[in-house]
Design a protein around this nucleic acid. Structure first.
Lengths: 181, 181, 181, 181
DNA sequence: TTTT
DNA sequence: TTTT
């Protein structure tokens, strides 16, 4: 009846934008959220939490988020399941985001995104607010918005039995005929 | 850096209380949270979200929560992983709760409460931890409290490579020598 | 950039439904939320938090919420201000709800709302989902939904300088020419 | 029974640290949170939300937060009231924070960081609580932690009937010798 | 002005 | 009285 999640953490990789066969944008990324305590060995551990965004928000995320960027995510927990190729049911837990806030401006202007991401807050921060190469930046430095009560994993017409995110690379094999948003 | 979850839903089963070898109480249950929209076929689906509580809160939950009961859970998302017996890494996502609120009072167990038991195919609470009726109830009808910034899955001294919740039945195979709380 | 509130508590009074001059429904109520600790004297205190809902959600709340009812509210904090009749600026903090969940069914069917609130989980639960007297009930026993990113206090065309909730009784003195939702 | 708030916004001023007569640290600040929509006139408005922190967290906030800094706040809504000097009851709504995250590092104020200083009219934080430059910074760029279920208005020995923030006055006398990180 |  |  109520399902709300708020996370602040850093992207572990650049986001992945795909399109469903019907052309709906889906972006997937993982954010690392440090745990509020240290482990036995005194190390700070993190939880790596998969996030999914849909439609307009998916495209904004794909455009503006990059590996290492500090990000706030608001959404709900979704648990979907599918049968893998060994006939075993696999459960996948993701945060379906309806609001994403970019807490860091890109700043870098010189390098590739590899450069940027390898630094993790370090690296050359030089050069004002100017843009990272070829992408437009949101005026506010914030972003997000979204389709609340809406965003969700599309349920395949016939087969829900495949992980839409398992076959990286090409258009995902899901149907989106009647997405409820 | 920030990781907060709030859920309201109903227990899919009676909670399971166990103890680590060092005697720390752990309770696991799953709550079903209806999605805020209907599926293609017009059915209302739900997410089944695993919840873990520790220590005092674990014992309170084991005492007062029952299958079908409407419950609010506050906590954080934790993603742990272990290697299964086929040598494959398995990821488990759970909500580590630090606050649980009992939104329904037990009402009686003798008979009249048809209404109550009809939710969730209820009825026989047989086996396991159950045994309705013989437990004290919290005066307020609420519950919870907890160890924030604390609760977490204990990380085994030597082997983290086993799902502590996979072998239902006997004392779980985890070490808790230095639980950080 | 992010503003989210989740509350569970009980209505201190029946909700008040009004309409703006342009016919937009607004419902105001206060929920009492017990504090997670006791006061000096060992008494359990509560915060009394004003909640505002708009449009469809306002009407649903007016129809189904009653004094004493346990309720979950999701929304954002809004601080508005106006100048009172002594020329002094007054600040009003409210939760603008976009999701409200009814955690208790009405149950009573005979009596007044006084009767209702005194029962508290008691009373006859008989007869499935059947309705409390003269009002339709939501099928699920839940309710809510709403206009996220939307709901907000309408800002008066000319004068924002009056508390829209101060003169109980008749149509509120606010303009809603271009409510952004 | 449940009361949780999460905010991300910017400090409108430097935080104010004080001590209760019994020596408990209290820090107050306001964060501006942009609304998720624009007003009639197309302007982006904000809510200005007062935040209170206690004890260790108060001192950390006083040490590391500054006007303009992007900050995440987690806590609960508290509504207190007192009688003002005209004998009228005044209601004050604040967020009592138990977790504060510093989303922007100070970066330095000495020289190189053009980028940084240009964004906030940086540099001289003149007067008040400031003292730029001479404080250690948290290694992670994050901060916070706190006393959950704890943070609360200290209950004065005799009179609770006074606004602890009413006697604004002069610079406060704090030490930061033993920062917790 | 407050709910249970 | 407000931040960017």
């Amino acid at each position: 009846m109520l399902n709300r999640v708020i996370l602040i953490g850093r992207l572990t990789r650049d986001p992945e934008l795909r399109y469903t066969p019907a052309g709906v944008a889906v972006t997937q990324f993982t954010i690392a959220v440090d745990r509020p305590f240290t482990s036995q060995g005194g190390e700070r551990e993190a939880d790596f939490i998969p996030v999914v965004t849909w439609r307009q928000l998916a495209e904004t995320c794909a455009n503006y988020l990059r590996k290492g960027r500090l990000t706030a995510v608001e959404g709900r927990i979704q648990v979907r399941n599918y049968e893998n190729n060994e006939g075993k049911r696999v459960y996948v837990t993701e945060v379906i985001a309806d609001n994403v806030r970019f807490l860091e401006s890109p700043k870098s202007d010189g390098g590739s995104s590899r450069d940027e991401s390898s630094s993790y807050g370090g690296g050359s921060n030089g050069g004002g607010n100017s843009g990272g190469g070829n992408r437009p930046e949101p005026s506010y430095g914030g972003g997000g918005g979204g389709n609340r009560g809406g965003g969700q994993a599309p349920r395949g017409g016939g087969s829900n039995s495949q992980d839409p995110f398992s076959d990286d690379g090409r258009p995902i094999d899901i149907s989106d005929d009647d997405l409820p948003f």
